[in-house]
Amino acid sequence: MSLILPQRSLSRRQLLQWSGLSGAGLLLGGCQSRFLPDKITQGSRFLTDKVGQISEPLNQKIEALMLSQQPVPEFAASEIEPDKLLINTFDTTPQIDPAQFRLTVNGEVNKPIQLSLTELQNLPLTSMVIRHVCVEGWAAIIQWGGVRLRDLIQLAQPKPGVRYVFFQSADGYYESWDIASCLHPQTLMAYQKNGQPLAIDNGAPLRLAAPIKLGYKQSKWVTGITLLSALPAQTGYWEDQGYEWFAGL
């Protein structure tokens, strides 16, 4: 397991301490009954969710405004930190036969496409040395090599109303991105890491890689790319648990 999961079970004592003494206690003490620990958990979760619901639309708007189509300055190859990239997976590691692998690009496009790994590797290769930042707080400088996502989107000839892109992964993970971030010149469908073919743990045969989004946005084992004019109800595995959707860097 990987990204920190919500804490659902706290002891009564912990809860009382927590609600009484912590910073939350300042706010919760007044509006929650101390004799109903369950209500306190629900109440604090409710309050935290409210805080997120109020602040996130504003924060995401500012993140979208800050997003520039200029490439983010890259690092030198000597600055690569091979040991710092931790492996985070929400469930299992899928085994994919590279010969059988097909990437589909469909949705609101004029020309849905299916590409084999060889066909992907015959498209122009972009290499970048960028910082990969995890929501947990750690970061690693990594070289990624792959196809620009915007090249794939262009191949499929998107219809005018496309605003979002949905990514389906072989392990059941799913993500959605804003179109501007997908068209960024450093948003890659990568099949190479630190000069080597991508390892299965890092998402082989194909994964998202970009310096402009947090790590959980960068799906591994991507098999389907769907262009959309509206966000689906389920916007992403971690987002549906409560993480921020835009997650821009």
Binding site: L3, I4, L5, P6, Q7, L10, Q14, Q17, W18, L21, S22, G23, A24, T41, S44, R45, T48, D49, V51, G52, I54, S55, E56, N59, V135, E136, W238, Q241, G242, Y243, E244
Partner: peptide, 19 residues
């Protein structure tokens, strides 16, 4: 320790911090 934390989990902590 839990008693000095706010938000219940990472995403909740981030909600508070960035608000």
């Amino acid at each position: 320790p839990d008693l000095v934390l706010l938000g219940g989990w990472l995403a909740g902590g981030r909600d508070w911090h960035f608000a």
